[in-house]
């Protein structure tokens, strides 16, 4: 009986496992290999080239014409900008998302369902279209631009194509990823704990800091990861709202697979991105383990 159950389970799981292993696992593995190869002359990859870590070196050093390695900060700057941009976005999402989740938890069941739908809808609507909407608002001659110009006496303000525009767009894109996990914690939260805290003399602020936030921490961390990781690999927002000036990792990857046709180098950057992501996830897992231990 249990044996046939196991067999049934394996057969049912097989399509999903095969699909994901063949179309996620295999590509990632191959990409790791390609990141060690050299770019081809006509195609993106020279499959016959000897594997080396040259592409990873290129991220930091550049070969001078006489063969010495000199520091190249171009990619380091982009990398740091991506991490910083992702961190700022995560912080902004937290500052906006936490109060929203708190407020949602105070609503009636109907109010909660409505808010849940309102917060979820942007998550499901086209990312490109939503960023395009900000492009319309922020561009020169857009209504926000005109309003700012009217209030700002020192000449026209460029709202678009800078880090601020990208931060606005990224926060806009990923805010639901923060609200939903944090809210799911508050939804199950036992509010009698807060009553108890008040009863024991804690003020509202102290109850928030000492009771509510610690309980919400798993949701906050999960949300932060859900915002941070896609931000790091963001392509659409910096491409539309950052113009050509504020590149992020995603744009550099796209360029290697597009105009530059240097697939191995693009693969190397992708591997670095994956590594940062894994690092962030491991840190979170360690924190969770320490907490539960």
């Amino acid at each position: 009986m249990t044996q046939s159950d196991t067999l049934r389970r394996i057969v049912l799981m097989l399509p999903a496992l095969v699909a994901i292993l063949l179309l996620v696992g295999a590509p990632l593995g191959l990409m790791g290999w390609v990141s060690l190869l050299e770019k081809g002359t006509t195609a993106g990859v020279d499959w016959g080239s000897a594997p080396s870590i040259g592409n990873y070196q290129r991220l930091v050093w550049e070969e001078d014409f006489d063969g010495t390695l000199i520091l190249n900060t171009n990619y380091l700057v982009i990398f740091l900008r991506s991490v910083l941009q992702a961190a700022v976005t995560t912080l902004l999402c937290l500052m906006l998302g936490l109060p929203v989740a708190l407020w949602m938890a105070s609503l009636s069941p109907t109010g909660r369902a409505v808010m849940l739908l309102l917060v979820t809808i942007p998550f499901w609507t086209n990312l490109l279209v939503r960023n395009y909407a900000w492009l319309i608002i922020l561009r020169e001659g857009g209504w926000l631009g005109m309003a700012v110009d009217a209030l700002w006496p020192f000449g026209p303000v460029q709202l678009l194509y800078n880090d601020v525009a990208v931060a606005i767009g990224l926060t806009y894109s990923f805010l639901p990823f923060m609200v939903l996990p944090v809210y799911s914690v508050f939804e199950k939260f036992d509010w009698r704990l807060v009553e108890a805290a008040h009863d024991l003399g804690a003020t509202r602020a102290r109850a928030l800091r000492r009771v509510i936030l610690p309980v919400a921490m798993p949701g906050i961390l999960a949300g932060s990861l859900l915002v941070f990781i896609p931000c790091l690999g963001a392509f659409v927002t910096p491409a539309l709202l950052g113009g050509g000036k504020t590149l992020m990792l995603g744009n550099v990857i796209q360029m290697q697979f597009g105009p530059s046709r240097n697939w191995p180098f693009g693969a190397a950057i992708s591997v670095v991105l994956l590594a940062v992501m894994l690092l962030a996830m491991t840190a979170l897992a360690l924190w969770r383990n320490r907490r539960s231990a």
Partner: peptide, 27 residues
């Protein structure tokens, strides 16, 4: 473990999976 594998496409940055798939398909 099965559920983690099922969620994998959700967690990984899309651009990375997209270019990796591109490499595989071309290869």
């Amino acid at each position: 473990a099965s559920e983690t594998i099922l969620r994998l496409p959700l967690i990984l940055p899309e651009i990375v999976v997209a270019v990796a798939t591109l490499i595989l398909f071309v290869a």
